[in-house]
Computed example of a mutant assay.
Amino acid sequence: MRILISGGGTGGHFFPAMAALKSFQEKGFDVYYVGSRRGIEAEKVAAFTADFLLLELSGMLGHSALKKLQAGWQLVFAVKELLLLMRRMRPDAVVGFGGYSSAAAIIAGRLMGVPCFIHEQNAIAGLTNRLLDRVTTRSFSAYGNIGEHVGLPLRHSALVPAPADEREHLLILGGSQGSLFLNTFVGDHLGELTDLGMPVYHQTGSLMHEKHMQMLHERYGRQLPANYLPFAFSDDIHHIMAGSVAAISRSGAGAAFELMQLRVPSLFIPFPHAAHDHQYANAKYFEDRGCALVYRQEEFERGAMDKVRTFLSCVDQYHGNMQGLEIDTDASTLTERIIGAIRMS
């Protein structure tokens, strides 16, 4: 069987797609990936598969009428290109993980009469997946807000939480691109953070690391506290997460599920400009289950360190609540349902 997987633009779409791609491959399927030249996949996909196509696509939301028209024409040409590709490869299914490349692939798949599936990663669905949900064969979601509840496919789903006595540090997590807000928070409170009595690991983000370090050196001199451990990006981030007493983090779906999978009590500060406020909804899902604490950005700023200290004083309570948390990060949950649906069609 042949599967065409599409989705990207951001890591939240791309990495679950790669987890599913690997799962399909392990089950003996031939898998082809389609993404955008403007997304994170342009730089990351070659590490996962040699069978891929990157299309010229851009977004429509928040742009001028001219940009929207341009994006519309790009979508039309992308669908035409994908129809040619599908006529050659004859996929048994198309699976979309969100983003504009996903829309093009699902449209082309429907025109070809191929079974089409989508997976929504966030607690509030993006515009693309809300529209595609009406035309797909079946829909799936991480939070159960669209179609069937299957959790979020993660590449490191086999990782297990570290025992409490092996956790030793606080993790501040702004995502692979970084968070200016969290970096500024660290800059304003570095001494108080490093006085908490544990190492502080801080993912500054690939795009922001140099400026962040320059800012710190200007404010605090060349010699920073020995227990402050900043890094731009790490391929070992999941092991850093696993050793965390707690985390202060944005709440993209990937970060939220990874932290919850590894049973890391988290103080979430959602990115306030996320589409449809989905980061707040992602975080609130876990707060409602007693596993996390959520602050709006402007709320957190008022007495930030007092809020951090209060949160850390309750870590044992969060750990206790997490013992009953049901969270699925195994890509096979999704891929096996898709395979079953293909065989029934």
Rank of each mutant, 00 (worst) to 15 (best):
107 I>S: 03
8 G>Q: 11
221 G>A: 12
324 G>Q: 06
135 V>S: 08
210 E>G: 09
29 F>E: 01
36 S>R: 14
130 R>C: 07
306 D>N: 10
247 A>Y: 06
38 R>G: 02
321 N>T: 02
89 M>P: 00
192 E>S: 12
328 D>G: 00
66 L>H: 13
191 G>I: 12
58 S>M: 13
116 C>Y: 08
37 R>V: 08
177 Q>L: 15
238 H>W: 13
299 E>V: 02
13 H>L: 11
266 S>K: 02
7 G>C: 14
193 L>W: 09
315 V>R: 01
156 H>V: 12
179 S>C: 10
127 L>R: 14
158 A>D: 13
158 A>E: 14
192 E>T: 13
298 E>M: 07
249 S>C: 02
141 S>M: 02
45 V>D: 04
328 D>L: 10
127 L>P: 07
306 D>H: 14
257 F>C: 11
123 A>M: 09
54 L>C: 09
297 Q>K: 00
61 L>E: 14
196 L>P: 10
212 H>K: 02
189 H>E: 03
101 S>R: 10
316 D>V: 02
126 G>E: 06
257 F>D: 00
93 A>Y: 02
319 H>C: 09
334 L>I: 04
325 L>M: 06
264 V>I: 14
296 R>Y: 09
18 M>Q: 06
226 A>P: 04
251 S>K: 03
24 F>Q: 03
128 T>G: 05
194 T>Y: 10
196 L>K: 13
324 G>R: 06
236 D>V: 02
34 V>A: 12
289 R>N: 00
329 T>P: 09
99 G>H: 07
309 R>M: 06
312 L>K: 04
63 H>M: 07
308 V>L: 00
88 R>A: 14
149 H>K: 12
74 Q>F: 10
79 V>S: 12
147 G>Y: 04
301 E>W: 02
6 S>Q: 09
33 Y>E: 03
237 I>V: 14
119 H>K: 05
128 T>Y: 05
48 F>G: 05
85 L>S: 07
94 V>Y: 02
167 R>V: 10
37 R>W: 00
6 S>W: 06
285 Y>K: 01
26 E>T: 00
108 A>D: 07
71 A>C: 10
